[in-house]
Amino acid sequence: MAVRELSSLEKYLGLKKPNKYSTQGDKKNNNGPPLAGLATIAHQLVKEAERPELLGDTAESRAVVHQWLEYSVTKLDSYTKEDIKIILKDLSLYLLDKVYLAGNQFTVADTLMYYGIHPVMVDLTIQEKERYVTVTRWFDHIQHHPGVRQRLPPVLIHRNRIYMADTIEI
């Protein structure tokens, strides 16, 4: 699945020469040694595209970007139903006071998290989307970010709250 996410990222970055990936997500670099691992390759792609701001604009947010890339790799590669609940709780707590995953700007962490969590969001019921309202808000914002969604189906977000008045369950 890392392969699919990396191709999406490549497309988002507008890289002309698509790289080749093996099923393990290894990248056969077009001009250089082969690279392995989603986070490493994502870094490399962003650098190739000359969009350094997507890796974070301060040392702190660069570290946070890395943290969430790693989170995507370890938590969103394969998960059980129980894992999903934990992931959504993690994220909704984290996003309580944040608009983006790292710092105050859109970064590659948001992109890859979006690709990673998209299958989860598609399957959420309206009620669940309300329960994890901060994740839903974040997700809706990212899927509207120009060029990110590509061919993925948009996830419908309801603004009107049906089940919960204004409480956020975390």
Partner: peptide, 12 residues
Amino acid sequence: QHLNTRTFLVGE
């Protein structure tokens, strides 16, 4: 209340 489900005030 408005920003509970929104990132910015109008649109995305």
